[in-house]
Design a protein around this nucleic acid. Sequence first.
DNA 1: TAAACTAATTATAACAATTATAATTTAAGA
DNA 2: TCTTAAATTATAATTGTTATAATTAGTTTA
Lengths: 143, 143
Amino acid sequence: MNQLKEALETLKETGVRITPQRHAILEYLINSMSHPTADDIYKALEGKFPNMSVATVYNNLRVFREVGLVKELTYGDASARFDFVTSHHYHVICESCGKIVDFHYPGLNEVEQLASHVTGFKVNNHRMEVYGTCPECTSKEVH
Amino acid sequence: MNQLKEALETLKETGVRITPQRHAILEYLINSMSHPTADDIYKALEGKFPNMSVATVYNNLRVFREVGLVKELTYGDASARFDFVTSHHYHVICESCGKIVDFHYPGLNEVEQLASHVTGFKVNNHRMEVYGTCPECTSKEVH
DNA sequence: TAAACTAATTATAACAATTATAATTTAAGA
DNA sequence: TCTTAAATTATAATTGTTATAATTAGTTTA
């Protein structure tokens, strides 16, 4: 349940130092359900850490990715978004406002197997995103 | 069958001028099965068009995307790749050398329906990529 | 607990991909 | 062929991200 505590343990186990900045970035990632960009995180924490550098945010997101705590999402032309890894899920993305909603669906393992069989690749993982318009943006549309 | 001819018709129908540069970019996209980046295209055509600007490549890829002739693929941190739209297919990507192989699989429409039902989104489309190691890179691996 | 070592942070510069701007050139219809 | 709007070019600007070097701060060991 306590995701932050578990995440900090992971860092300890993998020999990654726990700094106030890392603590804050992790906390923000876990609490925000908004799949923030590096800049979102930077801006959100500049009150707490007025001297923090953007490089710190990027560095630590890379570290978190390397130990498997976060995933980097790149879609379309915009900047990358970061997702604290919990259980396996996919994303539904609003093409109008950019909102990302999680979506659980268990049935894509067979696709990996088929892909491996057809292409001869050793398959590690896959990603899927569904694009559309969220209810809020749909209701705002002009008729 | 003649994809270039059809593509040029599409441009005519949508009122987009056919220039030598556009013709060449489309031709290159159709013939190359390699999902090129904008820079790949730029470099490939600089023999034919020594004065062509990168901006022209980007501009026209945007135009082609707008009329539905190409799709833009962004994955990982690298630069965008462009894919001439033919039939519906997915991509299997080698994490070692970056190669992209097409993979046909018909069964993901139900995912769209479920995603729409669960999230309330009006769903337009989806994308999926499978990641792994291609046979060539697998055989090169050290044991 | 203090000293020493190593890693993390900061500030800044560099970089690469992409887009914007303004001047020039060109495709396509009258 | 002439005209006009659109496309291309050359260049500058922008944005997201990474590299560098100096400083600061965790952690380990004496």
